[in-house]
Design a protein around this nucleic acid. Structure first.
Length: 285
DNA sequence: GAGAGTGTTGTAAC
DNA sequence: GGTTACAACACTCT
């Protein structure tokens, strides 16, 4: 599932190819994708991409000399795939998606670039969204969100404030985007394991030392996952259609019954904050 | 072959 | 107010 590291991977890929390229045509095949698909496509036609940005799990594509920006959320199964000019599709390509075969039945949007390159928005479960926003709309949109790993707001002070005096399980706070911006189910479970804390522990029960461990674990797991270009479970691929490298680094997520890398005890699975939750019942306390 | 599970976010309900 | 439950959807697994 695309969380911060996966969206950042896509952003970095697009940053290498999009800036300076103009949109020749844009088509939206799924009217549910945007509130006014026809107007959106018309408005971005002819515009020139500038440097892609990201906030939390939002991908933001600004343009040169045009004050609106494409704001994309991949939700559960969204993918942004870039195909360059006259790409020759070789059989046996390692890509999870045969990008030579796009568009396919999951393609919700296609952008053709002036040099023949194409950008596809694929989304199996159709939860993803695309919107064209003015700067004021965008800042209003982003205002409610919390502190984000890797930004200047990411300080122990502000992190600790999130956890003090709250009865909710730490995992539900980690998943709450208005508190912590960018973590999802995978990295919440992984951060808890790295911090040796049970995801269902009430936040208020954490000692200062434990909050410190959790703060460090969140920062580390996100940084490592960004470095390895994200985690592919079922759906995530980068903009070349290639899977991320963090899946093999996972210690607990979707590893029920496997040995805990810390103590060897089998990883357990339960439910916390309404999500499948994976943990080691021995090393996490 | 039916039914549960998958997990993000907005909204509704407590 | 803070938290929880559920719907949106399509596909996989039991």
């Amino acid at each position: 599932m695309p969380e911060l590291p996966e969206v950042e991977t896509v952003r970095r890929d697009l940053a290498e190819v999009l800036p300076g390229r103009a949109i020749k045509t844009a088509e939206i095949f799924d009217r549910k994708l945007a509130s006014d698909p026809i107007a959106l496509c018309a408005e971005i036609t002819g515009k020139i991409f500038s440097e892609p940005e990201r906030r939390g799990k939002y991908l933001i594509l600004p343009f040169e000399r045009f004050d609106k920006q494409l704001v994309i959320h991949l939700r559960m199964t969204g993918q942004i795939i870039y195909r360059e000019t006259n790409m020759v599709f070789a059989s046996g390509h390692p890509a999870k998606i045969a990008i030579g075969l796009l568009p396919d039945k999951h393609t919700r949007m296609r952008i053709m670039l002036d040099d023949g390159g194409e950008v596809f928005f694929n989304d199996q479960r159709r939860f993803g969204t695309v919107a064209l926003m003015a700067p004021s709309e965008l800042s209003e949109k982003l205002a409610p969100f919390g502190i984000e790993p890797g930004t200047k707001d990411w300080s122990f002070d502000r992190f600790a404030r999130v956890f003090t005096g709250r009865k909710a399980p730490i995992k539900s706070l980690l998943l709450n985007q208005t508190l912590i911006f960018g973590l999802g189910n995978i990295y919440a479970d992984e951060a808890c394991h790295r911090a040796s804390l049970l995801p269902m522990r009430p936040a208020a029960s954490l000692s200062a030392k434990e909050i410190e461990r959790l703060f460090a674990a969140c920062g580390e797991v996100i940084a490592e996952a960004v470095e390895l270009r994200g985690t592919s479970m079922r759906d995530f691929v980068d903009s070349h259609g290639i899977e991320g490298g963090f899946a093999e680094k996972l210690r607990v997520y979707r590893r029920t019954g496997h040995d805990c890398p810390g103590c060897g005890h089998p990883i357990a699975r339960g439910k916390c904050a309404g999500r499948g939750t994976h943990f080691c019942p021995v090393c996490q306390k």
